[in-house]
């Protein structure tokens, strides 16, 4: 126990660096997947058949395969098979590849949540907008959107909390996120080796961050409680 207390400052410093990378991946994924998910949702609801089939096909592939495999394929396929390493080397390249994988993967899950949210808004809302002379985009932004957001906050909260933990999958392409940073102490890092407790300790970071997120999302849900 005394040894752990001695190692603690060094470990926390290293884990902080790793967790920063985790947070970066988390926020980049959200920023990319929120709008892309909406595009895919509109694609799959499109009356233009080829577009809706394409969107549904992509969603099927992405949801039907493990994110870990998607990460591996997206990171290694261009370089190893096409001999065109588009991602570049080093941590920056790994981060880019991980971001693309995560955005694509989460956009597909989000798209289904959006679709449910949009289709859950009664058709009478759109019709009321139409007979009042509104355009389709006015109807979407002024009427449907907020009702959709209200509906999707609970399922979205679930996905967002899952994303925090899923970022650890980027470890598979050696992205130096918090799990990677914790694991490094087993092999040897910052003068400490053979220590497994830093890996276990990473759980505390996830737990605290998810606690904060849960609180914020709960607050958003209550904020939207002013209408039904």
């Amino acid at each position: 126990m005394g040894q752990i207390m001695e190692q603690m400052p060094i470990v926390v410093d290293a884990l902080n660096v790793g967790f920063l990378q985790t947070l970066k991946l988390f926020f980049v994924t959200l920023i990319g997947a929120f709008p892309l998910g909406l595009v895919i949702a509109f694609g799959s609801m499109s009356r233009f058949r080829p577009l809706s089939y394409l969107s549904k096909f992509v969603v099927w592939i992405i949801r039907g395969t493990p994110l870990m495999i998607q990460l591996l394929i997206i990171y290694y396929f261009p370089g190893l098979v096409l001999h065109n390493p588009i991602w570049g080397g080093g941590e920056a390249g790994r981060f880019l590849a991980a971001s693309v994988s995560f955005i694509l993967n989460y956009a597909c899950y989000f798209s289904e949540i959006y679709r449910g949210g949009i289709q859950g808004v009664p058709v009478g809302q759109e019709e009321a907008g139409l007979v009042l002379g509104m355009t389709r985009s006015q109807i979407f932004f002024k009427i449907t959107l907020l009702q959709m957001i209200k509906r999707i906050v609970p399922p979205m909260s679930n996905e967002i909390i899952t994303l925090v933990k899923d970022t650890s999958l980027a470890r598979i392409i050696a992205l130096q996120e918090i799990i990677w940073a914790g694991q490094a102490f087993m092999k040897g890092s910052h003068g400490i080796s053979g220590a497994i407790w830093p890996l276990f300790f990473t759980a505390v970071y996830y737990l605290i961050f998810n606690g904060i997120l849960t609180m914020l999302l709960g607050r958003l849900e209550r904020k939207l409680d002013y209408f039904r």
Binding site: P122, G124, Q125, E127, A128, G129, V131, L132, G133, M134, Q138, K142, I143, L146, Q147, K150, Y226, F227, R228
Partner: peptide
Amino acid sequence: GLVFQSFNLFPQYTALKNVMLAREL
């Protein structure tokens, strides 16, 4: 103008805003 059987008011707006919205747009 059309008044629906099930009202179809916009739930996120007050009564006044419901009346004003289309005119504003």
